[in-house]
Structure formats: C-alpha cells, structure tokens
Amino acid sequence: MNVARDLLKHLCEALLRGALTVLTMAVVWELVVRVGGVPSYYLPSLVDVLAAVTVAPGAYVDSALRTIAETVLGFAGGAVFGVLIGVAFFQWKALRDYLFPMFVISQTIPVIAFGAVVVLWFGNTLWAKAVIAFYMTFFPVTVNTLQGLNAVDPRQVALLRSFGANAWQLLTRLRLPAALPQIFVALKLGATLSLLGAIAGEWFGDSVGVGVLLLHAMYNEQIPALWAAIFLAGAIGTLLYAVMSYIETRFVFWRDEL
C-alpha cells in the first residue's frame, strides 16, 4: 500500500524532527529538576515519570487504546455530521436561521455539565465518550464547512452555472472541494478537541482511559504518574493531529493556489 507507506514516512519524518526537540527539552527538564533542586511535587524527574509507566505499562497501553477508540469514533461522527449539517445549512437558509442559534447555545454548555448528562444517558460505555467527542467536533466543522461553502469564488459558480450545472453538481464539483481547506482547519482543531472531550468524558466514572489515569494520579497525588498521563495525552493528541495533517496534504495539495 503506497498510501500506508507514505503515511508512515510522513509520521517518521515528523517523529524524527520532534524527537530532537523533545530530547533537548528532556535534558533541560532533567537539569532543572536535578541541579535546580525543584521539589518533586512541582516537577518530578523524568526518570520517575518513566518509572511510573513501568509499574503498570499495560494500564497505559489499554488506556491509550481506549481513549483513541473513543476519540476516533466521536471525531469521525462529528466530522461527517458537521459537514452534512454545514451543507444543509448552506442549501436551506431557513434551516440555518432556525437551527444555528440552537447549535450556538449547545456549545455554550460546558463540556463538564454536558458530560454528566451523557453518562446518565449512555452509562459508562465507550459510546458515552464518543458522544462527548462528537459534541466537541461537530460545531467547528459545521461552522467552517458553512464558511468554506460561502467563500467560493462567485465567478466560478457563474462559470459552472453557464455550463448548465445543477445544485448538486455545483456542490460536489465546486463548493465542497473548494471548502476543503477550511474544513480541514476545523478537522485538525476537532481532532484535538475530540480528544479533550473523550478525556473529560472519562472523568464521569469510567475505569479505563487516559482521563482515568489523570484522575487517579491527580487525586492520589502521584505526581510522576500525573505527568506520565499528561505526556500520554499529549502524544495521542500529536498523533491525531499528525494523521489529520497528513490526510490534509493528500487532499488539499493545491492549497497554495488559494
């Protein structure tokens, strides 16, 4: 598979580039902690952080996989729903006038408040977290899709109409592809937000996940484990962002034109 190899190459390059930065930061960190004498509850030694992982490596792997599954599910749903609703809002102005304010209001609900309700509805399931990740993703995608569809060059629209294009053709041949760069901005944001949503969702009585690791470490004052969970969350976030960026370069290779 060419695509798979490309993705791997892309990721490897990003990793290599990142590795150098990370290594430098790690050295500085360790120096500050050891030479600077920073108390371990402010900043633990990275060696201690790694040790926290090695105590129960399985827990970190299971948690990462679980959180990734929740995030990816919710994100995918939110992305598809966001684009569809964005298109619907674009095609039917009345729908937008009536529903858009509700969408905006829905986003003013803090995710923590929303999370409690979702747990009541879905229980401690993977779906509950996916729903919260979905909730975090769909709105920016809707807004950017709408914006992207509206920002299409009217001269291009005129050209396609002069060729006799119908509404569906205008949408699929012109508006959606032209809106892709905008949509991808939201998708990259959404990848990070949905991870945030999944983690927040895990704070409502789940037993596996990065959010659970964070909670356990926080409330048991296991500072090295807390940092280990933070790094894990950061790594997942970076991975998701990198994958989205890669997909973007595949689909929006022509962006420099706009």
């Binding site: 999370g115 409690a116 747990v119 009541l120 229980g123 401690n124 704070w203 409502f204 009585g205 037993s207």
Partner: peptide, 15 residues
Amino acid sequence: LTLNPGGPNLVAENL
C-alpha cells in the same frame, strides 16, 4: 452486578 466508579464530577445520590 456492574461496579461503576465514582469521581469528582459524580454525585451518587443523583445517579
């Protein structure tokens, strides 16, 4: 029986 953990954002009375 399912054992459901609690946490900082959950109130067992409500659930």
